[in-house]
């Protein structure tokens, strides 16, 4: 079998289907990028719906977006940006083979991810109290309650799918942190740290678009 031709020192890291570590690293990274392309189109479908309705009902969207908490949303954007920074630093630590730093930065990243989710939860709670949850409890005071409901459906679905991705991201980082602690990565091989970082940054990018599109439609009065 061809397996036996692999050099001994890298063998513990290289899966049987790959010739060498380099091939395995490149495949992993490329696989994640292909997956992110899928994710772009997954969120793209929702953004498409958003643009169609924002174009069709501009005033309704402007009025309905008044119910968003610009401050909390802004803070949350900052929180995610910080988490992206610490994620980048975790990958940087992996490049230098500093195991403790990787774990530290991963934990900080997860903490900020959790803070984001908590703030998001507070916002959802506000909507619940204000009877603005479509399909569950929706009493809208302003004009065009139906079309406004579309805005709120989009808000909940888009931020909901985003939050779901964040929860998955925290799960992934937990696994990566445990793997790091068990010494599964070296200066030469840290691709899983790197590609979970890619996933995390992608979640950040989605929010970078969600924030202005959902919160900042009409804050000038």
């Amino acid at each position: 079998m061809d397996n036996e031709q692999l050099t001994h020192e890298t063998r513990s890291f290289v899966a049987h289907q790959f010739d060498d570590l380099e091939q395995q690293k490149e495949a992993g990274t490329l696989g994640m990028w292909a997956f992110l392309a899928t994710e772009i189109l997954f969120f793209g479908g929702m953004f498409m719906a958003y643009f169609v309705y924002r174009f069709s009902y501009p005033q309704v969207f402007a009025a309905a977006s008044q119910y968003m908490d610009v401050a909390l949303g802004g803070v949350n954007t900052g929180v995610l940006l910080v988490s992206s920074l610490t994620m980048a630093l975790a990958v940087h630590a992996a490049q230098e083979g500093k195991r403790k730093q990787i774990i530290l930065f991963l934990i900080i990243t997860m903490v900020f991810g959790t803070v984001f989710l908590v703030i998001k939860g507070v916002e959802y709670h506000h909507k619940f109290v204000e009877h603005l949850v479509p399909g569950f409890d929706f009493h809208y005071e302003g004009a065009e309650p139906g079309k406004s409901e579309i805005y709120f459906i989009l808000y909940f679905i888009m931020t909901g799918f985003h939050a779901l991705h964040l929860i998955i991201g925290i799960g992934v980082l937990t696994v990566i942190a445990v793997m790091t602690a068990r010494g599964r990565f070296t200066k030469e091989y840290y691709t899983p740290v790197e590609i979970s970082g890619l996933y995390w940054h992608f979640i950040d990018i989605v929010w970078i678009f969600l924030y202005p599109l959902l919160y900042l439609i009409h804050v000038h009065k």
Binding site: L85, M87, G197, D204, I205, I208, F209, Y211
Partner: peptide
């Protein structure tokens, strides 16, 4: 602005 931010993240944070 959102596109600029995304491009910065993609180019540098995502290498």
């Amino acid at each position: 602005i959102a596109i600029i931010k995304a491009v910065l993240v993609i180019l540098y944070f995502m290498h």
